[in-house]
Design a protein around this nucleic acid. Structure first.
Length: 571
RNA sequence: GACCCCAUAGUUCAACGGAUAGAACGGGAGCCUUCUAAGCUCUAGAUCUAGGUUCAAUUCCUAGUGGGGUCACCA
């Protein structure tokens, strides 16, 4: 039983009915836990909340519970002061490998679809936020008890391919030589060439009418698998995918299923043509559209005048395939906010073409990554590449660590860099816009990934010198004779919050809740670390502190793991 | 023009109808013969405007202002 349940029992004995919503008092001096008495006063008829709180505090105090040392009325609140020893007895034994896990899922499958980079295009910080968010959500759902399918829908067909191919065909060396170029051996080098070609093609598309026409023809040629561009297309597509794999590995993410737009276009077109005679789609100005306006949304083109399926049509086929493949209870498409209205139209169209999708398709909105002005000097073009960011953060870490970096394995520095970047993206609420500031994202102090890893390293350093077990029988007996300090009690209270946080984060599909929780946990640990020596303490106290330390480390690591952040032994 | 998001310390974020609006960075003042100073302690500093609903509003509603996004053959 956790400690709020113990207090809940006392309250029931005191005659309190209805839901109990505990909060933390604004200041620790006011107590460890608070109960607001507004509803209570209403239910008991006409009394003021303050009067109800006063009576309740008095009856709780009379009960002489081993946990509650004192119950005080403060205005409309009852504040509880808890005994540290009993609190430790309730909190510590619960902390194990499955602490904070839930069983909300009940046999249900949730598909999290994320990453979806387009081949032949740059992999930038926007993709980074997407992947980091998607991976964390997948882990949160898994922790909540769902079966999770990680899917990635990659755009390997469409106008952007035409732009890149055009750039390749109009560059030096000529495209046919390029694909057999012995110099282009690393994924990064190959993708650099593609990025430059895309930039060339995109610029020409805007500036030059004849180039625009050629690009559209190239796009069509990919759809028809035209022999003239088949080799260059398949080769460069493979280059992109190979490169993406290096980044997925680096970010410690993986996918159960890769979907491609090229698998969807013919079926997508079929679906639209199937439903066109039945009025779900209509012809308009030569194109086939879904009349979103009828539903208070906006009209969208599903088949172009040339009868090529747009992204919209392909998404109809994708949904069909995804439900057939995994029968998910829900599909979460992790896509930036710019496509919110697009998804509303798509889901509306899906209700007609795939009625079973109703209520199961979700656009998981993550906010735009906004680049701050004047900070983007040393990269190519307007975008900040994901790889460049990771490398830059790694270099910064080496620079700041000075001589200590030499003693650390490269893998450790890489982990710290990945932690810095992931945490920087996850600490902001998912749906909120994120101002991407290079200086801040590489920051290694304060509210940052490296700070959290540093705390783990400190804990492990102590635990290496003395093993501990949070659930040991010894603890049950020992805590009685140990005086528990305020720092320790605050740390215990924070540890006790963890299961509620992992649950809420999954329900609200927001990893930032876990990030904020962990920062507070780390800060409370810091306070403990400063004020409570562990190894030098008296034997009974040392045993207790080791157990508390062990529990804290477990929770911090489990929380970081839910964010997709791996820890390090030392730093 | 229509529709959708957003607006909180100098800056980046919390607070999801309840107490004196919390952190971090940056500013000011301190702490390393004691388990890793990437740390800790103290300090100054904020709810866009106007109405409304409520015992209670940063939070809900309306209008305005300011920013971002989307609105036809692109993804």
């Amino acid at each position: 039983m956790n400690y709020p349940e113990v207090i809940g029992q006392l309250l029931r004995q005191a005659g309190v009915t209805g839901e109990l919503k505990f909060t933390a008092p604004p200041h620790t001096a006011q107590g460890d836990l608070a109960l607001a008495c507004f509803d209570l006063a209403k239910e008991s008829g006409g009394r003021s909340p303050a009067a109800a709180a006063k009576d309740l505090a008095a009856s709780i105090t009379q009960m002489a519970s081993p946990l509650v040392e004192q119950a005080q009325a403060a205005g409309p609140y009852v504040n509880f002061f808890l005994r540290g020893g009993e609190l430790a007895r309730l909190v510590l034994p619960a902390v194990g490998d499955d602490y904070g896990a839930h069983t909300l899922g009940k046999e249900e499958t949730i598909m999290v679809e994320f990453a979806h980079p387009n081949t032949h295009k740059a992999f930038h910080v926007g993709h980074l936020r997407n992947i980091v968010t998607g991976e964390s959500l997948a882990r949160l759902f898994q922790n909540a008890g769902y079966t999770v399918v990680r899917a990635n829908y990659q755009g390997d067909i469409g106008l952007h391919i035409g732009k890149c191919l055009w750039g390749l065909l109009h560059g030096e060396p000529p495209a046919d030589q390029l694909v057999s170029n012995q110099q282009l051996t690393t994924p990064a080098a190959r993708v650099k060439v593609l990025g430059e070609a895309y930039a060339r093609g995109a610029a020409a598309y805007e500036a030059d009418e004849s180039a625009k026409k050629e690009i559209q023809e190239l796009n069509g040629a990919v759809y028809t698998n035209d022999p003239s561009i088949r080799k260059i297309y398949t080769t460069t597509r493979a280059w992109s995918l190979e490169y993406f794999d290096t980044l997925y590995r680096r970010l410690d993410t993986r996918f159960d299923r890769l979907y491609f737009e090229s698998e969807m276009f013919s079926r997508g077109k079929e679906i639209v043509e199937e439903w066109l005679p039945r009025g779900v789609f209509v012809e308009s100005e030569g194109a086939v559209i879904f009349p979103g306006k009828r539903f208070g949304l906006h009209d969208r083109v599903f088949l172009t005048r040339e009868r090529l399926p747009t992204y919209e049509a392909k998404d109809l086929a994708l949904a069909e395939r995804q439900f057939a493949d995994y029968h998910p209870a829900h599909i979460y498409h992790v896509v930036a906010t710019e496509q919110s209205e697009y998804f509303r139209v798509l889901f509306q169209a899906l209700e007609a073409t795939l009625p079973a999708s109703r209520g199961r398709e979700h656009h998981l909105v993550y906010g735009w990554v906004r680049l701050r002005e004047g900070k983007m000097s040393s990269r190519t073009g307007q975008v900040v590449l994901a790889e460049w960011l990771l490398d830059t953060v790694g270099a910064k870490i080496r620079e700041m660590m000075g001589e200590r970096a030499a003693a650390l394995p490269d893998a450790t520095v890489e982990r710290i860099a990945v932690a810095a970047v992931k945490y920087a993206f996850l600490k902001t609420g998912v749906s909120n816009e994120l101002a991407f500031d290079l200086e801040r994202s590489v920051s290694l102090s304060g509210d940052s990934g490296p700070y959290l890893l540093y705390m783990v390293a400190r804990m492990k350093s102590i635990l290496r010198q003395q093993s501990a077990d949070s659930a040991s029988q010894q603890i049950q007996q020992l805590v009685g004779g140990v005086t528990i300090t305020t720092s320790e009690k605050r740390l215990l209270l924070q540890i006790a919050e963890f299961p509620a946080v992992t649950r809420t984060a999954a329900e609200r599909t927001d990893p930032s809740l876990v990030a904020h929780y962990l920062l507070t946990l780390a800060q409370r640990f810091s306070d403990f670390y400063e004020t409570c020596p562990v190894l030098k303490a008296e034997p009974a106290t040392r045993t207790f502190r080791l157990a508390l330390l062990h529990a804290t480390q477990l929770v911090l690591e489990r929380g970081l793991q839910l964010l997709g952040i791996a820890t390090v032994e030392e730093m």
